[in-house]
Design a protein around this nucleic acid. Sequence first.
DNA 1: AAACTTTTGATTGACGTACCTCAATTCGCG
DNA 2: CGCGAATTGAGGTACGTCAATCAAAAGTTT
Lengths: 335, 335
Amino acid sequence: MNGPTVHDVAKTAQVSLATVDRVLNGRGGVSAKAVAKVKAAVAQTGYVRNLAAANLSRRRVYRFCFVVPSGDTGFVALLRAALERERDKLIEEQILIQITSTRAFDVADQVAALRQLDCDAVAIMASEAPEIQEEVSRLRAAGVRVITLVADLPQFNREAYVGLDNVAAGRTAAEFMGRYVQKAGAILMIAGSLSARDHSERLMGFRRVMQERYSHLTLLPAVEGNDDADTVAQLVTEAADTQSLVGIYAIGAGNRGLVDAIKKTGIKPITIAHELTPEARERLRDGTIDLVLDQDTSAAIASAVNIMRSLTEGRDLPTDAGKIRLNIYNRENIL
Amino acid sequence: MNGPTVHDVAKTAQVSLATVDRVLNGRGGVSAKAVAKVKAAVAQTGYVRNLAAANLSRRRVYRFCFVVPSGDTGFVALLRAALERERDKLIEEQILIQITSTRAFDVADQVAALRQLDCDAVAIMASEAPEIQEEVSRLRAAGVRVITLVADLPQFNREAYVGLDNVAAGRTAAEFMGRYVQKAGAILMIAGSLSARDHSERLMGFRRVMQERYSHLTLLPAVEGNDDADTVAQLVTEAADTQSLVGIYAIGAGNRGLVDAIKKTGIKPITIAHELTPEARERLRDGTIDLVLDQDTSAAIASAVNIMRSLTEGRDLPTDAGKIRLNIYNRENIL
DNA sequence: AAACTTTTGATTGACGTACCTCAATTCGCG
DNA sequence: CGCGAATTGAGGTACGTCAATCAAAAGTTT
């Protein structure tokens, strides 16, 4: 009834269990002939390793860290919530997740967080600073596998990136913007920070498609909202006063300010925002926001854990590892 | 270094291992006091069951079947490919996936397929016929857990449905259609079969939103393409000849015919289709199709397997089990 | 042929849980 | 108190793999 075991393989290969083990686990010291016999027996019996038994036997405990900015609103809140949900599931599989909070944009704090890590692999969502880059190098030298999360840091020697293709996200947003906007006018792009790589990449993609295919719309210079509602409100109000605003592409947080300004000025631009926060969900429903582009935090975390496990086990990654799907929501498909 | 085990729980609870086991696995015959002691000890020690050890010990082998229509093109091809990919991964976890092909729309063949099943749970994608419903009842009576895949059959006593919310999918399509279409005119809706529940649900959702919010567009009566390219081409050509066609909502397969007809008649309607087949991908790229709504086959299968496992283990399902996300693709976010 | 190196076999003990049996103890109740 | 019933304890076996050890066998070199 049950599948074949190593014993069956040994029997059909007519070698000892020890030899089968040596072949299967690449321990070396086996003649080519024996290797061939074992491989043939594996193929013949259809042997597949029992993962549960393997995990149990090697009693490996994975210790993974996630270093993410603190903050209890918007996207990071979603991320942390998903992280805690995943953690509970993963304990059963002997995967221990440690979550470390850092103050956003506080490089010293982030460096400190990285320095006191004690784990097999880290997923970091951090600023792009030389001090952090240096700390990452130190970690890598100490044998810790490092991947970046949500915002890539390509020049760091991270081993993988888990998150959106942000250029593609920006391009997608632009395509929808071009299709949705019905009359000529100006498009406002609000980023959280122009120096944040993910935001600038989205901007780049957005801008490029608008120029390629929707050049009848005027692109206003991109502005920085600093993920702050008041700043965002101010920027939107200003733009609405001086321009005929037909579209807003809101990257990053601070959408509350956006919504307030739209209400106050009485304009009705096509609004595309990022991240399906509870706030954004509400605005989709009432029509203030037309589209939300979202990266699935659960999927990102699951992918990050998989990659960290592969890396710690020394396996190499599939080329598409870490690619996170871009989820698109309009008022009709908010789950 | 390692986490606490049942032995640790027994020690801190000051009961025997047997009692801990009885509590943890709900075998009954334990006093309330002992239960409390064990639970407290679990909480205190932070004990979490080692899944690998549990699986190994109970040496449970899950045998799940997928009954899906044959056909090497379009959506079912995607589904089968995903199924085979997943299968290889799942063998390691002692989950055996058997894939049974049936001729689409051939009820007798599907009944025969169901009759010769031998497994713990089945996921079926089948026609809505009383004979099949009866066969499902027989399976359920024999202790086989049955779920429906992609197309729900609510009146069957299936235990779960894995797939899209097709009404919401239709509504979403309509929302995009209303936004994309710039001038007044007629919208053509092509279903594969009007008697297929998934198709009719999508139609219903689509129609409703068009009437609610985009009533300036004329909805032509829905037509049946029978997933056949020639039929679809014929229908599109006819509509284009008699109407000012500004939009096409293509549910189901046969998009090759759709594309041919669009090219031949020289019209340029907004086209929204379902399922990201290689063909659809190509048409998104060249602009013939404007949007594709897709259900992620891998996600659906993973979800189905999870649900089948939960069911066979007698656990109850979370309320949102089986909900599959609707993926939306335009020319910029095809992966 | 002796002295080696390399390859193989046989065996053993974990890993942590599930599940079973049998005896011992406690409990409830008349 | 004594009876049966309910509860508890002690102990064992099995799951399949990993990771050793040590001795035996085969192969190679001088």
